[in-house]
């Protein structure tokens, strides 16, 4: 009798079993996340300890202890400790740098993605531009600094230009690569369904190369944060790069390290944001959905 009811009423059994299974999966996920955070924290904490021990052991006055940097960071952000020119000035420096980084980055994406889509699809354009781009590419972006100061003057514009150049190439090259590796079958499928010509760009080329474009954007953003420091090191009064440069001339290593940490954390957060965006737009792709 009990066997029969279990057989004829499978839904009851399933509903009862479903809840503990879901709860167990939830608990396992939480534990896995905790473990990942703990594993990731080991090395940074170890480095902090090593840094502290080394500073005490050598008795150096050139490098502050982690605690000294923490104080500086607090003062830089909120003020109230040293009350000098840098106290509480983090927001303004941070904001200027962020504006320049994203300004240059968006310009690079705006130019690089459409140009890459066309370069990948139009052989004539590729024949015209590929050699020039290949010649310009090996030149380190930092080597453009003197010229960019002549073009744009001493100031933030030349920093934005450097950021643009640095982000442009990875975005462009990854877009071209993405377009070239689109499965030809997809073009055939679109063609037989009556989609052709310029329509193909939006319907097939862009979505199919999106995984590669996102790779390019992530690379480009990381280069942007590298180049903003170079760009702000000369002739710019505000910005995280300028702060680091000032710290160097004033021999305030705590300020230098503070600037480094803030750039590192901001770069990391901005990359995470891009990953979130990429996960949203690539939810159809099993190997890109993290």
């Amino acid at each position: 009798m009990s066997l029969e009811s279990a057989v004829t009423n499978p839904d009851v059994g399933r509903a009862a079993a479903a809840k503990p299974v879901a709860a167990r999966i939830g608990a396992r996920k939480l534990r896995a996340k905790l473990r990942a955070v703990l594993l990731a924290a080991i090395v940074p904490i170890g480095l902090l300890l090593l840094w502290d021990v080394m500073v005490r052991w050598t008795g150096t006055r050139l490098i502050p202890s982690p605690w000294g940097v923490a104080l500086m960071m607090w003062d830089f952000a909120f003020g109230g400790i040293y009350d000098d020119a840098y106290s509480g000035s983090l927001p303004i420096h941070f904001w200027k740098s962020v504006q320049r980084v994203y300004g240059g980055f968006f310009l690079a994406a705006l130019a690089g993605i459409p140009l890459g889509l066309m370069l990948g699809r139009i052989p004539l354009l590729r024949a015209m531009l590929d050699p020039t781009l290949s010649l310009l590419r090996p030149i380190p972006v930092t080597a453009w600094l003197p010229l960019s100061m002549i073009f744009f003057g001493l100031g933030p514009k030349s920093a934005v230009f450097l950021v643009f150049l640095g982000a442009f190439y990875p975005i462009l090259l990854n877009t071209v690569f993405g377009v070239k590796s689109v499965d030809v079958r997809l073009f055939e499928a679109a063609g037989m369904l009556g989609c052709s010509g310029p329509q193909l760009f939006r319907a097939v080329v862009l979505p199919a190369s999106l995984p590669s474009i996102f790779n390019g954007l992530r690379l480009g953003a990381s280069f942007a944060w590298i180049l903003i420091v170079v760009g702000e090191m000369t002739g710019v009064p505000e910005g995280l790069g300028a702060v680091i440069m000032d710290g160097r001339t004033l021999s305030r290593t705590d300020l230098v390290i503070t600037g480094m940490i803030i750039i590192g954390v901001t770069g990391f957060v901005s990359d995470r944001l891009l990953v979130l965006l990429s996960n949203h737009f690539l939810r159809w792709s099993p190997q890109h959905h993290a």
């Binding site: 079958r185 369904l193 199919a208």
Partner: peptide, 26 residues
């Protein structure tokens, strides 16, 4: 190629970024 002749490929050639509904409505 033209819409009067439709091909069904052995390896499907569906658009991976479109749902079932949007693939059919393409």
């Amino acid at each position: 190629p033209g819409p009067d002749r439709g091909m069904v490929f052995q390896d499907y050639a569906l658009f991976p970024w479109l749902t079932v509904r949007d693939n059919i409505g393409f």
